[in-house]
Nucleic acid binder design. Structure first.
Lengths: 336, 336
DNA sequence: CTGAAAGCGCTTACAG
DNA sequence: CTGAAAGCGCTTACAG
């Protein structure tokens, strides 16, 4: 593989000059510049990014940690990151913890060794040891859909408010007995604020909270939601609506209802959370709290690049969400 | 950030000795080894991967090109890659072409500059210019679910055979009028062999081919399949089964049928292709040709690492697929 | 077993 | 505007 010295020799200049051409220094005389460019062409020379990184102290690389790349919401956000990274000329090193939080430390170590210029951490906790390491190495971090007691730049949706709005939407449509299929109560980042928004909306409408109407799953997945639907409906056959903490869970509720001959929305209204492509594919199309997942991924990268370049970033960015009205919620008010 | 010299100074040895400890050379006297280890601890030293890569000519990094990370099948395969990469101690640089094949060249260039040790290319064409570059730089490549006229190591499912089996399965169940919702005919990698398997299965059973029973979409997505279902059913109301070229397309057919009151499988049988998590979630659960997507991703990484280490690899690995029988195909034979 | 020294491929003051 | 030289942080023959 040709090096900068080969190019220099062929163009009959010094390696310094070649380097200048490579880095678009404008103080190279046109004649030499052309010779260098031509030599680069002829040799098929490609600068060694490792050597560049070593000397510049920059790798043009961003480390990304996600819990599970194949999970629907993460996959959409990661796509946004990949797009923005491409547009801005950065690379992404992708790491999936696959539910094993212990891997976070080892990935962080690896990021340090690889000298990534910044890190995006999606829905993964930043513990004290992690935070210390990041500070010590002074690597900028952007959190996505996560939370931390440390002052890190964070991009998220206000889950409590969004949940409030979702449940309030159901209430406005005349639903008084509203079930919740939630994620695990231990998930303080996502499950707890959603439950809290649910409770506030009820309280706001003067509806008493009923623990029998809240099912907490082990995760946010399909199978769990089927169990949750069964759990809720068998205990409270008269509920008219369910708020699902994820679109995939809403899908599980659909499947359960279909099996039992329960019609959506005629017999049961469902509202989801996430705003996946999937939500549009359901029959009937799912009304859901839509987070701009793609855009969150894009924003994460662009904010991180700003941080890397020394620009300040506001600590928390609340992204806009919206309740995407489709056909899974019955308007009881209109029926009266 | 401390360097190897700081460690050496603190441990009162040479940098060479520190390096030996780092690389587990067993010819370091225990006393010094311990001092070095302790100095590393105290300083929080982390070797600079860029410097190591520069000198070793290795970056411990694999470049991955996929058409769209957020697409269901790719996301599952990428998860497999990430898992195996983690287990084997490699990093993945992830690049999504997002349908723009022109990006392949620029990603390849970037991979060369980053000195990746190998490349995985998923369902993306390797053109002459790409192949030349790869040979010239002698970077090992593994193709996944792709095809190439060049002798590259390739991991795939025999799509023609799998399609043959899928259609044959329908025929065995008594279906004689079988529709096909295919991807674009220009997709010689995936669509053409599937169509060819479909035709062979019909021919084998003595059923005449009918062009009115084949719909070619623009892609493999949900919306397209709805159009396809409409197209097929309006032309041939008496067809009893449809073979969908992707699970997502099968989902589209489900949605269309649901809207029209066509029951699956009572009125129409559907068989899919891919074997996504999604297939299990449908109602009724989708019978589908299941490719081991996760495992294909894992295999891609492990084979690539072998190539990088100079071990030979057989050029084409046909992965096992299976027809996962669920509940979307009616057995007409049993009904007679 | 271990250290001094050269070198991986690049960039950047420095002097001219 | 440009070249010689030093240096980024590491590894590895080489000699001892």
């Amino acid at each position: 593989m040709p090096t900068i010295r080969d190019v220099a020799k062929r163009a009959n200049v010094s390696t310094a000059t070649v380097s200048r051409v490579l880095n678009h220094h404008h103080l190279v005389v046109p004649d030499k510049r052309d010779r260098v460019l031509q030599a680069i062409q002829e040799l098929g020379f490609r600068p060694n990014g490792l050597a560049r990184g070593l000397i510049n102290g920059r790798s043009q690389t961003i480390g990304v940690i996600v819990p599970d790349i194949s999970s629907f919401p993460f996959a959409e956000a990661v796509k946004g990151m990949a797009e923005m990274a491409h547009d801005l000329g950065w690379n992404l090193i992708m790491c999936s913890t696959n539910g094993d939080l212990g891997r976070i430390s080892s990935y962080l170590q690896m990021f340090v060794e690889k000298r990534v210029d910044g890190i995006i951490c999606m829905k993964s906790p930043v513990l004290e040891e992690h935070y210390k390491l990041l500070c010590q190495q002074s690597i900028p971090v952007v959190l996505v859909a996560s939370a931390s007691k440390y002052p890190l730049v964070s991009i998220r949706v206000n889950r409590e408010q969004a949940s409030f709005d979702a449940v309030n939407y159901l209430i406005q449509k005349g639903h008084r007995k509203v079930g919740l299929v939630s994620g695990p109560i231990e998930d303080t980042i996502a499950a707890v604020p959603k439950i809290s928004g649910y409770r506030k909306a009820l309280a706001d409408a003067g509806i008493e909270y009923d623990a029998e109407l809240v099912y907490c799953g082990q995760n946010y997945l399909f199978e769990n939601a089927k169990v949750g639907a069964e759990w809720l409906i068998s205990r409270s056959p008269d509920l008219t609506a369910i708020y699902a903490a994820s679109d995939e869970m809403a899908f599980g509720i659909y499947a359960y209802c279909f099996g039992k001959g329960i019609r959506i929305p005629q017999d049961l209204s469902v509202i989801g959370y996430d705003g996946l492509k999937l939500a549009r594919m359901l029959t009937p199309p799912l009304t859901t709290v839509t987070q701009p997942l793609l855009q969150m991924g894009e924003t994460a990268v662009s904010k991180l690049v700003n941080l890397i370049n020394g620009l300040p970033g506001e600590s928390v960015t609340d992204m806009e969400y919206q309740i995407m009205e489709r056909e899974s919620v019955l308007n009881l008010v209109a029926l009266q």
